[in-house]
Simulated assay, not measured.
Amino acid sequence: MQANYTLWLNGNSLVLIDNSVSASRAEALLDVQLAAYLTAKKGHAIQDAAWHKEYLRVQGGFGCNIATLHCGTPVATQASASEPWQILRDRLLAGVLGTLREPVAECLDAYSAQPDAAIEQLLWVECVRPPDDKGISHVRVELRLILADSSVISTELGFSTAEKLTADWLRQPLSLASGHATRQFDGNYQTHEKVIHSISAGLHDSIKLKQMQYRSRVRTFVSSGAQNE
């Protein structure tokens, strides 16, 4: 099945967007998410439960409401070492309908096979907090899919580790800190077109300068193979 998606970096998230979503709609949804990320980041540490609560609240206020949310500990963390990317990939695909799962998996695997070092460095800055006084680094990262109908599937991973994180931290097998909770949030969002349309211009203008710092287009997947535009 043909893959037809574009991958974006947006705050602490990698966002895969169906290319049938209009450019204006895609930008509006990215703006909503980025505004929520910046607001949560301003008021709370990424490892705090209040960070996630604020992240969801702001999105809801801008017309992107969480419809279902499941919070738990990833099964993969029961092993001796866990790769953040593999956990995110598997959980996102678990929420994708069968007919779409193959092309989405193809895009994710193509990116993983040829990651963008510059993008992952930017992602590192937003996702990873330097070791605290006990040598523990706290991490929060999200993988998100925007479907053709503008609905959103998301999986977020928050964890802590005493290991030194490498440049390839997303695919680095990690032993997670047992004294800190590891949480995965699997969510489905419903978007309200009228609300998003009414606020999109003002929201875009308010975070225009931030977009240059926190958002980058990573790669477009245009066929059964992955190609760069």
Rank of each mutant, 00 (worst) to 15 (best):
L203W: 06
G202E: 13
L170I: 09
D168N: 14
I199F: 11
S178P: 11
S151H: 09
L176R: 00
L174I: 05
L157K: 02
S198Q: 13
T166A: 13
V141A: 04
S200R: 05
T191E: 08
F185K: 03
E156S: 05
E142I: 04
T166L: 12
Q172T: 11
L165P: 04
R144E: 05
L157C: 08
I199S: 12
D186Q: 14
L143P: 01
A162R: 14
Q184W: 00
R140F: 05
I153A: 05
H197P: 04
T161P: 03
K194E: 14
Y189I: 03
K194Y: 12
H197Y: 07
G187M: 07
L147P: 00
K194V: 13
L145P: 01
I153N: 02
E163D: 15
L176N: 03
F185A: 07
D168P: 05
A167Y: 04
S175C: 12
L174Y: 02
S198H: 12
S151L: 07
A181V: 13
S154F: 00
L165G: 04
E156A: 03
E193K: 14
S175M: 13
H192M: 09
S175N: 14
R183I: 05
T191G: 08
K164R: 11
A177T: 07
L174T: 03
H197I: 07
G158R: 07
T161I: 06
S175F: 09
Y189H: 12
G179Q: 04
E142R: 05
D168Q: 15
S178Y: 14
D149K: 08
I153E: 03
H204K: 13
E193R: 15
I199C: 15
A167T: 10
A162L: 10
E163W: 09
A201F: 09
T182S: 08
L157H: 03
V141F: 02
D186A: 15
L147G: 02
I196V: 15
S150K: 07
N188F: 09
T166W: 08
R171N: 14
S160K: 02
G158N: 09
H192E: 12
F185C: 09
H180I: 03
L143T: 00
G179C: 04
E163L: 13
Q172K: 10
R183T: 05
A167R: 11
D186Y: 01
L174N: 01
S160I: 01
S151C: 09
A201P: 02
S178M: 15
L174Q: 02
E193Y: 13
I199M: 12
Q184G: 06
H180D: 12
W169P: 02
S198F: 13
E142F: 02
I196A: 11
I146T: 02
A148G: 05
A148P: 00
